[in-house]
Design a protein around this nucleic acid. Structure first.
Lengths: 339, 339
DNA sequence: TTGTACGCGTTATCAC
DNA sequence: GTGATAACGCGTACAA
């Protein structure tokens, strides 16, 4: 591997001169055009590439952002978010490094992270206690931690999507189509997490006094196809709002099985706007979570915090909300008159 | 940041002793239990974390694998592949760093990569000329490059899925169900790339002499919903094999629109086995590409190459194929008798 | 322009 | 056997 030493030898100049030229300090340090050229030529000819490790060690700063998440597989969320992060960091010279997060094994994760001295961390789906521990430990080393989900804590940086608003928008949309009996499809686990999507649903039905609209009780614990089909066939709801696109697709399947027409007899909405949902039968009305922009916004925020010396995030909670928006497709229509 | 110096000072021992203990060389260098313990305690107490940068610089080896790809967004492929890579590398102490690949800007990419001295690179969807250039340049620095797609080149490392076999399996499956008029849905661009999936289709129909089975000509250039619906409605095929799951979902939509029953009147197969396809109406028969295992296999192979001093990949082509397999769901059935 | 110290950990080599 | 000393790797910063 070619180093500045090789270039110094080759040109007969000193390492410092070479370093100055090659790092563009030619203005402040005043080096003659001639030697400047000479050095650059030599660097090209010998195939020099600055050793980023050495650079980082000596400056004490790294150009690495860590993405801490449990599992990237099985969904297109994370890919799209990472896209946004990379897109935003490209210009600033930052790179993204993937850190595996294993629930409950915080100390191991911390050693990994701190050892590599990243400039900052973006975390996805890290749970409350782990987040708190990681946040505080990283704080000691001046490494800011940004979460993509809200966490009940009085400090830190959060860039989150306005999930509650999104579900409320779905309810409002259905309300305006005349729906009064709206069911919400979610499971008990996310209920217990006081998920924003559940809140959004409750906000919506409270606002319009939809006393016949409820979180579908049968689906809280078991959501197999049989149960789904039974619920759909019962026609207890003229519309079902789902907490994910996948759940909405399940409802579509159940409706097909039960012979219930969507959207004629039942309206359905999803959440996320995955690539597949416009290819559903019928194309799904859903809440668009702008994953790529989300990642970009997170990266921008993190960079601003990295460059902000005040470190206010250590004592106050900084929250940035990303707007979501309802995409109307063909799975929602005016309410079917129910008895 | 706590360094071995701090620990040396704190314990009154020398840096080398501390280093030896903290890097587990306590056997070969023989250091007493007592001092060993003392040092470890101090490290814990002071909150020491080995500076991975310094380690890497001094040893000249990094624990970084680069993932070079154009765009991670819009699909769940890459996330799942990355999952596999991370899963496999976790045990070996390697980390994955994301490198953005911009078609045609190879020199910029190379500078980025070489500057950071990764131990190896896994590339996804890098085109032929760029791959060749990157491969040869990285070779000079001893950085192996593994591609997840096959490339017409006489050297390098390739871990690819057996796409051709997968499509052939789909054709065979349909053949055994009595289908003789099978259409293949792909576009001209992938045809011109001599894609393995097209080959697989041709292999299948050749083997069984299916003279009425063809690559659907109308869909090569325009595959909007109107054209799709027309093709499906024409009933020219009793089955349509698609080169992607998304295309298969489009066929399902078109069939629904045209009033053609799937699988009663038309069988459909996809390719990939995305999470959404079992939620289709009907659940889609498709070829499973095991993304996570794919990533794992790639990582394993890359690690073996990194540790193999012979560097045989520089002069010969190493190809590892990952088996795919047909998943039968409900979008395929015995052939409907066509006139 | 250049010499020199520095950052952090590793690895001989050397003294007790 | 135990531990210390010193050089090394690569690039930066600052005084000379």
């Amino acid at each position: 591997m070619v180093t500045i030493n090789d270039i110094a030898q080759n040109t007969g100049l000193s390492r410092s001169t070479v370093s100055a030229v090659l790092s563009g300090k030619t203005e402040s340090i005043r080096i003659s055009q001639t030697t400047s050229e000479l050095i650059r030529k030599a660097a090209d000819r010998l195939g020099y590439h600055r050793n980023s490790l050495a650079y980082q060690m000596v400056t004490g700063t790294t150009n690495v952002i860590g993405f801490l998440s449990e599992d990237l597989g099985g969904t297109e969320f994370t890919g799209a978010i990472l896209s946004g992060i990379m897109c935003e960091s490209a210009g600033s010279g930052y790179y993204t490094k993937l850190f595996p997060y294993t629930r409950g094994h915080v100390e191991k994760n911390l050693t990994d992270i701190i050892g590599q001295r990243p400039a900052g961390i973006i975390s996805f789906a890290v749970n409350q206690p782990d987040f708190e521990r990681i946040f505080d430990q990283l704080a000691k080393f001046g490494i800011p931690l940004l979460s993509l989900q809200n966490i009940e804590i009085n400090r830190g940086i959060f860039v989150i999507t306005a999930d509650a608003d999104g579900v409320t928008a779905a309810v409002e949309h259905l309300y305006s189509l005349g729906h009064r009996k709206i069911g919400f499809f979610t499971n008990r686990k996310s209920m217990e997490l006081k998920s924003p999507r559940n809140e959004g649903f409750l906000n919506g039905i409270t606002k319009h006094n939809l006393s016949e609209s409820v979180v579908i009780p049968e689906l809280l614990d078991t959501a197999d196809m049989e149960t789904l089909t039974r619920v759909v066939a019962s026609k207890s709801y003229t519309a079902i709002v789902c907490d994910t696109d996948y759940n909405a697709m399940r409802i579509l399947q159940a409706a097909a099985k039960a012979g219930v027409k969507v959207p004629g007899e039942l309206s359905v909405t999803g959440f996320a706007n995955l690539a597949a949902v416009e290819l559903c039968i019928p194309p799904l009305t859903t809440v668009l979570q702008p994953f790529t922009q989300w990642g970009m916004a997170a990266m921008r925020k993190l960079l601003s915090v990295i460059n902000d010396k005040s470190k206010s995030y250590l004592t106050e909670k900084i929250v940035e909300k990303i707007e979501v928006k309802l995409i109307e497709r063909e799975s929602t229509a005016p309410a079917y008159p129910v008895n």
